[in-house]
Design a protein around this nucleic acid. Structure first.
Lengths: 201, 201
DNA sequence: GTCTATAGATTGATAGAC
DNA sequence: GTCTATCAATCTATAGAC
């Protein structure tokens, strides 16, 4: 009676998002996804006729977009940009330790796995990253007038964050993420200083 | 006659190194490794009684150490440290494109895959990264007297390199690696400047 | 030590009853 | 739309002939 209508399709996508993020693409079986989603196995192919690939593509695009928005919202929650960067990396570190080093980037593991083996999924990950770079570029452009510099900062923040996730998860230690935050703050400070001294590079 | 004695064990380890690097741990089957190594399947368990895990652990430690030494040699091939960093990232970009975006970091994909699922392999990747950080710290300490600053630079270089590999492989574009090189050079320049102005932080 | 055959579990995917 | 049964392939791992 009035059960919350959990929506099988969403439950499957949600379980797949968690499992792909934590165990990767090859490391996650459809059977496990169905079990974790408390959904019948056949429902996967009912809602995702393209099978594992289609499910993964939707997971990549959806969770990628959500994660990008989450990070942007985090950056906007602190007024000073340099402090904001440090705060965002600290928040990532806190979340990582709070989830026992499970929840880092939602798509990085899959991105590395499929880069050379599945063209559809590779393009999906590339487009997610491109979206992040574009959004980050706009954010940094608020503090750095030179568009090229803003774009480089966006690239660098995403890259050092991804690398920090790799090292922090491997070592089960949040320290790499904190170091990454300080380095990124340093880069931003330098860019802002330079813009002040000689506008437009 | 006098055939080069290719050493079955080495052939297996070599094939596994290539396949783990390109397709990941879960994505690489032992059958495929045996085929690629032109070795009988049973030889894998003869030389690696611990099975896939033991083989992977040896691959992680060996290829990790080799890669670290290779990068250090690359850094030492250019006298000026800032130029050297840019040069090293450019070399990584060249190698990546030359191998059709297959050969990036030898252990990053596996590191992310096993971080939450295989404690033995997680520790192996963590120790490889720790070795890189230590070696990098010593290298940067030649130009930056503050040991903490040298350590942060080593961390940052490894992290931004790893992140750049993720983005470059996903986009099939060497540009992220070049941006990463410039950012890392910028960080080093700043650290050297600061050390000059106020020694020991 | 080399190599084959195969066990036993699990994979992605499909068919078809309900 | 839901769910079960099953297929063919592949996985890791082992047994045992040579």
């Amino acid at each position: 009676m009035g059960q919350a209508r959990p929506d099988t399709r969403l439950k499957i996508q949600g379980a797949a998002t968690v499992l792909f993020r934590r165990n990767g693409y090859s490391g996650t079986g459809l059977k496990r996804i169905a079990t974790e989603a408390e959904a019948p196995f056949g429902s996967i192919y009912h809602f995702f006729p393209g099978g594992k690939q289609q499910l993964a593509e939707e997971v990549i695009r959806t969770s990628g977009a959500e994660y990008g928005q989450m990070v942007l919202a985090l950056l906007d929650s602190v007024p000073d940009p340099v402090e904001s960067v440090v705060h965002a990396f600290q928040a990532a570190a806190d979340h990582l330790t709070a989830t026992d080093y499970a929840d880092a980037c939602p798509i990085a593991t899959v991105a590395l796995e499929v880069a050379g083996t599945d063209e559809v999924l590779r393009v999906a990950t590339a487009e997610v990253f491109a979206g992040w770079v574009g959004a980050g570029e706009q954010w940094f452009a608020r503090w750095v007038s030179d568009q090229d510099a803003a774009r480089s900062l966006a690239y660098s923040m995403i890259m050092i964050l991804e690398g920090a996730f790799v090292l922090s998860r491997a070592a089960r230690d949040p320290e790499p993420l904190r170091v990454a935050g300080r380095s990124m703050a340093e880069l931003l400070r330098t860019a802002i200083d330079r813009a002040g001294r000689r506008p437009n590079r």
